[in-house]
Design a protein around this nucleic acid. Sequence first.
DNA 1: TAATTCGCTAGACCGA
DNA 2: TCGGTCTAGCGAA
Length: 820
Amino acid sequence: MRNKKICAMQTKTSLQGSIIDTDYFQDKKNNSVIRLFVKTGKGIEILCDPDFRPYFYVIAESNPEALAKKIRRAEFGESKAKAVSVEKAEKENAENALKLSFRNTSDLVTAREELREAHGIRERREYDLPFAERYLTDRGLIPYALYEFQVREENGFKQIESAKLVSEQGFPLKSIALDIETSQAIGREEFFADPKKDFVIMVSYSDRDSRVITTPKALEKLGFVDVVENEKEMIESTREMLFREKPDVLVTYNGDSFDLPFLKERAHQNGIRFGLGPLDEEPETRRRGLYNASRMRGLQHVDAFQIIKMLSAMDAIKLAKYDLESVYKALFGKEKNKIGHKEILKTWREQKGLEELATYSMEDALATKKICDEYLQFYIELAKTMRINLFEATRTRTGGLVERMLTNRSFELNRLIPNKPNEGEMRERQDYTFQGAYVKEPISGLHERLAVLDFRSFHMSIMASHNMSPETMNCDCCKDSGFVVGNVWFCAKKSGLITGIVKELMEKRAKLRAEMKKHEAGTSRYKALYAQQWVTKILINSIYGYMGFPGARWYSRPLVNALYSLVRQYIKETIAKAEKDGFIAIYSDTDSCFLELPEGKTEKDLEEFAKKINSELPGVMEIEIEGQYKRGLFVTKKQGKEAAKKKYALIDYKDKLKIVGFEYVRRDWARIARDCQRDVIEIVLKEGNPEKAVQIVRERIAELRSGKTKKDDLVIISQLTKKPSEYDSVGPHVSAAKKAIAKGKKLRSGSLIEFIITKRGKSISDRAVIAEDVAEGDYDAEYYIENQLVPAVIRILQELGYSEEDLKQGGRQSGIGKWG
DNA sequence: TAATTCGCTAGACCGA
DNA sequence: TCGGTCTAGCGAA
């Protein structure tokens, strides 16, 4: 009765909005139904697309019709699952392919397992693509863009009839940052809080305004604090705030592993739920590789910590540490106060210094919000390009991004995507290593008048220019006419998958950069364009690495080998041409070439040379003058007489320094050594006054000997890359970590160890102690002189004729011998 | 669930 | 106690 009535009330409407998330649910008929979370002017609308069925392909050994017939009749598993349709699929790169569609994803899983090695099937394809993710690919929908949806309302569901792109720019997203502080019951002093035993003492959030929800009445007088009775009310009040404000993005700093799971468990301990977002759904925490990820459907959880990790992996930012304070300082150049775990505990138990704690808590949320604001535009662009949601965009690694891009493209070109390697293939691939780029040994010493040339997107421009792609390799049509590299050739007739993508990305980037220059830096349009060109650059640069990665679907050993051989060939040819032209090639690494302009060679000659090279290069390949420098320094290696590669310092005609590879840029050297090295390099390059440099070194040595060097200048940072017990060779950072763990500190694989070398103990490792357990002045001066300061500067000063003894003279105090 | 190779250096480790 | 070898980490591209 009721159903009939609703059917009769079927209505059609249209609405404008942007897709911010997709997932699927099981309807009453057991169909998996795609659900879209669409942001409209009036909040989130939930739309369904019941016509889209989960599917995968099988490729028949010989007779696809017979196989299709067999599969149509087949019942899979105990549930007797059946394919709802089996159709012949015409694909560009596969014959005898059948597309199998299912009622729901569990039927699909049952069938795909049973068909793994079934008779008559050569292989299964595209059987492991997540249903909700492939929806956007197949429908060609761009998340976070603005669409006009035609919607039919039926049985209480809003079903999509059609979607028309209105603008690439969707509704602006609203984000709120959330952060919690916790305390522990008396008697518990664990480093990591446990939500079953410990509790939340403050919740802070940052929107346009930043506020703190907590319990102490005394804090009521602070304008930004809302006081509630207890923890339960704190959590409820947080939820109320989120339901009131309705953010699209919830931002945390390490909320994946900490804030969200903790709040959820505390809610349960208090007998309430921690539902969030349009579905009032509790965050679900899942293991995702090394880390956890917490998500709710319809509300994008962006963990700024993951953002920072990812940007760091992409070399977009460089940081020594990943705690909120360090990140904040690195991004915004401002100090943010830090209150340690122990201090928070003490403050809460004694109820003294609560105002500072509340301020700190509020600033945490604010800083988290600011980090997210800085990169949100970038991730929205990435999400659009990849057709994934923000949750995925902020957590997917480069390999995954490349794969997603190739998957989308394959769909557009009606090509089946390759399968993931199985364990055996994986192992075999892992055992193989490619020979990579060429690095020319530099001519050590000081050089004047240097120019650095480099190839733009070197690897990918080679691939695009020679139409190198897995499916264009060794094609039937160009056996004699294709482009030959070693024992393979590439098609001269049909443009390849990779070629198309790379050309498009390179053109897109050039356009974006041109457009970017028309706007003022700092404007939101400029920022958006910058973010887009950056996404593009990162994607371009990740493709070839991905193709040599053992886990890749598009892994191709012969292709990568051919590429690397061209990579070496082109740079060597360039060096040869430069020398023939009268330049002196000082150094070269992969795609760059450092040339000295000898007397008589002008800047114009250099430009002419670059032009000539470019005229001889094929396709989109291009060399450019990266910079010109008045002086450059290369040093010898510590061992042997050769010059060190990947280590140099340059100064341009505006006196700007560029230091590469030296200890100065390495976090596993103490600040005192790094800063001193920088000073020495600067004086040498800028003033050409080595005597002054030596003087500075002597001063630092004396300072170290006096015992007055600050702790911060002595800290060495190194990462624990495995469990302390798993090390064959126990280095200083492992030893320091072990001692700290024995004292109750929780450190694990991935933790950054900050340590100082003290005087107590025999080996260096014995003397290494975690920085926070070291008092000011408690350090081994001789270690810092002999193993840090002197090694950092000696090879630079050696180039100018100084010896180790010259540095220590005058810095030595009577009575203190080298060995004590 | 996962991008690559090349290169430098420290400090432990190990055998003489 | 010395010196060669190996493990480990980080950075360049």
